[in-house]
């Protein structure tokens, strides 16, 4: 019961973030919303461990968090350079 409130709040914020991801307007807005959706989903998985009484869910949350970071950085890199980077070609560029 006490988790229901928190899960409800997280689901509401998930919906708000999805609306922003659908509205855009730039691709970076969508990537930002996707990143935030990943964080909220991670929190939901961490809570679900206590709701269902199965401790495996926090491992899922960890893996989800790692994939979220990698996904965000891949999207960012793709829309910055137009490809996922060829080592050696734009090395100076990557180094900033």
């Amino acid at each position: 019961m006490m988790y229901a409130v928190v899960v409800g709040a997280l689901l509401v914020s998930l919906c708000l973030l999805l609306v922003r991801a659908l509205l855009g307007p730039t691709v970076f807005d969508r990537a930002l919303a996707g990143n935030a959706v990943g964080t909220v989903a991670m929190l939901l998985l961490a809570i679900f461990q206590f709701v269902s009484g199965r401790p495996e869910f926090v491992d899922l949350a960890l893996v989800y968090g790692l994939l979220n970071i990698v996904g965000t950085i891949a999207v960012q890199k793709f829309f910055r350079y137009g490809d996922l980077g060829e080592p050696g070609v734009a090395d100076e560029e990557h180094r900033l």
Partner: peptide, 14 residues
């Protein structure tokens, strides 16, 4: 409180 802040943040993103 954490849930409230999540909703506020998501509302702000919107």
């Amino acid at each position: 409180a954490g849930g409230v802040f999540c909703v506020i943040g998501a509302f702000g993103v919107l």
